[in-house]
Design a protein around this nucleic acid. Structure first.
Length: 572
RNA sequence: UACCCCGUGGUGUAACGGUAGCACAAGAGGUUCUGGUCCUCUUAGUCAAGGUUCGAAUCCUUGCGGGGUAACCA
């Protein structure tokens, strides 16, 4: 007999939090716009690797499409051939797929170069754009400044016929880079500098990663973006706050061009994360100047770096859904990200024992040569993960920080004469401390209580501390890379005038454990697997550097550590 | 100095003129063979001053604070 499922019994579907963009879309839908369609796009420029800030945008754009039963395109905004590369195009697609999203159409702004060119001729013909012969410096001088209106270009009143001829000759390659531009004729005294006759096309004799040498004039972002949106029938063009001031121009083009659709631009605040930088320029600099091993260095906030660090797409999506979407500029605490991966990995990561900073102990009343195979749970959160056997022998490794000769108050771990439980095994008591000539502890001699393998002590004495261990005879060593914040300061972008932002780099962001001792089952760990090293942290088997039988571990994040907090508080 | 946007606990985000809620962080306790997980509880907020209203985080005005904008970048 099965219990009939009642509505109460089935867990409610997770409701993603609403935000202001939903309000806007709902209003558009209610007003009957776009035939009830919702279509978005994620429009990266292929000039760098995607980072976690892009993840927010990806989750937003694809998430909106999912929520409203619409579609989301992936569009490469490739209008500047001097900065864009195929390598970036490839990595971006990989990252979006990895995050778990499937685009409807894969497009490139360059797919629309011919249409954009004709749009430009249309503006010229209608007297709304002209060819300007001013140099770059002159253009910016004529533009005025934030508080001073601009002056009209002397070429502003060229006839449409003359401009059209010049524009065609620009395309034909008759002029050198920078010799002329196509400019919109809008308003040189507008308080919005974007409307002061913005440049639409510039001459660039450059190789483009897709169109090769086909073009020597390229549209500017403003002239390309909205029109591409319209050509793709995008309904809602979501972008970050710094484009807000471009919106009047975005709309001006759509109003003055023969486009069928009129998408709407909506801006939101980009993600900022503490203890890292999130600008492509700075990330590129870190890569180029070798402060990190590459775009996929596990300390990088890039999606490829975060992936190699051991973050899961599920945890990233949960993070992005949880932080909200608004128009306030703010910085998310790194701890929120860490919380999202801990929450995910706690449920799925297999447990194992690994001693990162080993200290040798000898159980003097445990027979030499004897091996006891002890059963250990693979994941207490998931019974289906089963159990495994771990070898216990007379000589073991324990964590050096799990022993203190002079234990502070509330220290539950090993110290002379004190008893602790070895996880899954027996309770031991420290009988003797061996040291080298300079006073460093080299070995502990302990005894074990054979009656304590399962359950408590027989005489009722309490053993509060539990520590992890590895059989010295069976342990193996493997590279274990311990990562920390890339920057020591919480807001690495906030540096005083004249100070290099890179001076905030954390010198301890990567520490390789010198002689970690791992339990034997870990030898067969495969690239891409997640583990929790009990009492230590979550670790990821690096798919890039690991080989069969020779895994390389990356610390994704530490476990929450109540003792560390107590210690820290005691210090100061 | 011009224009635009934004101000809700420490951080981020809800509340759509009607009980200021959630998450993270912080703190206290409980459970636990991970000082993990889990559970309970606590601290803590509407930038300020006026105005409209029976009633304002929400609408208006002013002030203050933060951010954006002057590439032939996106």
């Amino acid at each position: 007999m099965t219990t009939p499922s009642t509505p109460e019994a089935s867990p409610p579907a997770p409701v993603l939090p609403r935000h202001f963009i939903h309000d806007e879309i709902d209003a558009d839908l209610a007003a009957g716009k776009n035939e009830g369609r919702v279509q978005t796009r994620f429009p990266p420029e292929p000039n760098g690797y995607l980072h976690i800030g892009h993840a927010k945008s990806i989750c937003l754009n694809f998430g909106l499409a999912q929520r409203y039963g619409g579609k989301c395109n992936l569009r490469f905004d490739d209008t500047n051939p001097t900065k864009e590369e195929q390598e970036y195009v490839d990595s971006i697609q990989e990252d979006v797929r990895w995050l778990g999203f499937t685009w409807d159409r894969l497009t490139y702004a360059s797919d629309f170069f011919e249409e954009l060119y004709h749009f430009a001729e249309h503006l010229i013909t209608n007297g709304k754009a002209y060819i300007c012969d001013l140099s770059g410096d002159e253009v910016s001088e004529y533009r005025g400044s934030l508080d001073k209106p601009g002056r009209e270009s002397p070429f502003r009143h060229r006839t449409p016929a003359e401009s059209l001829d010049l524009f065609r000759r620009m395309r034909a390659g008759e002029f050198k880079d920078g010799a002329r531009t196509l400019r919109a004729k809008i308003d040189m005294s507008s308080p919005n500098p974007n409307l002061r006759d913005p440049v639409l096309y510039r001459i660039l004799h450059a190789h483009h990663h897709r169109t090769r040498e086909r073009w020597c004039i390229y549209p500017m972002y403003d002239f390309a973006h909205g029109q591409c949106d319209a050509l793709e029938s995008i309904t809602h063009s979501i972008c970050t706050l710094e484009f807000e001031i471009h919106r009047p121009l975005y709309n001006w083009f759509l109003e003055n061009l023969p486009v069928k659709a009129h998408p709407r631009q909506i801006e939101f605040a980009r993600l900022n994360l503490s203890y890292t930088v999130l600008s492509k320029r700075k990330l590129l600099e870190l890569v180029r100047d070798k402060h990190v091993s590459g775009w996929d260095d596990p300390r990088m906030p890039t999606l490829s770096g975060i992936r190699r660090r051991g973050y899961t797409p599920e945890s990233l999506r949960a993070f992005c859904d949880g932080i909200g979407v608004a128009r306030n500029n703010g910085t998310i605490d790194r701890a929120v990200l860490e919380n999202s991966i801990r929450e995910d990995l706690n449920k799925r990561a297999l447990r194992a024992m690994a001693v990162l900073d080993p200290l040798k102990i000898t159980i003097e009343n445990f027979p030499e040569g004897q091996i006891e195979w002890i059963e250990a749970v693979n994941n207490p959160e998931d019974p289906a993960a089963g159990t495994r056997k771990i070898p216990f022998t007379r000589t073991l490794w324990i964590e050096r920080e799990d022993f203190k000769e002079d234990p502070p108050k509330k220290y539950f771990r090993l110290s002379p004469g004190k008893e602790v439980r070895l996880r899954y095994a027996w309770c031991i008591t420290c009988k003797e401390v061996k040291k080298d000539a300079s006073g460093n502890v080299t070995e502990l001699v302990c005894t074990y209580d054979p009656a304590t393998l399962h359950g408590a002590t027989t005489d009722g004495r309490k053993v509060k501390g539990i520590i992890h261990w590895v059989s010295a005879e069976h342990a193996f060593e493997a590279p274990v890379r311990l990562y920390d914040h890339l920057f020591s300061s919480e807001h690495p972008d906030d540096v005083p005038e004249g100070v290099d932002w890179k001076s905030g780099l954390n010198p301890g962001s990567l520490v390789v454990a010198p002689h970690p001792k791992l339990e034997p089952s870990l030898q067969h760990a495969e690239g891409g697997q997640h583990f929790q090293f009990e009492r230590v942290g979550y670790f990821f088997v690096d798919p890039k550097d690991s080989r069969t039988g020779a895994p390389v571990f990356h610390r994704t994040t530490t476990l929450r550590d109540a003792w560390a907090r107590i210690e820290k508080r005691a210090e100061g």
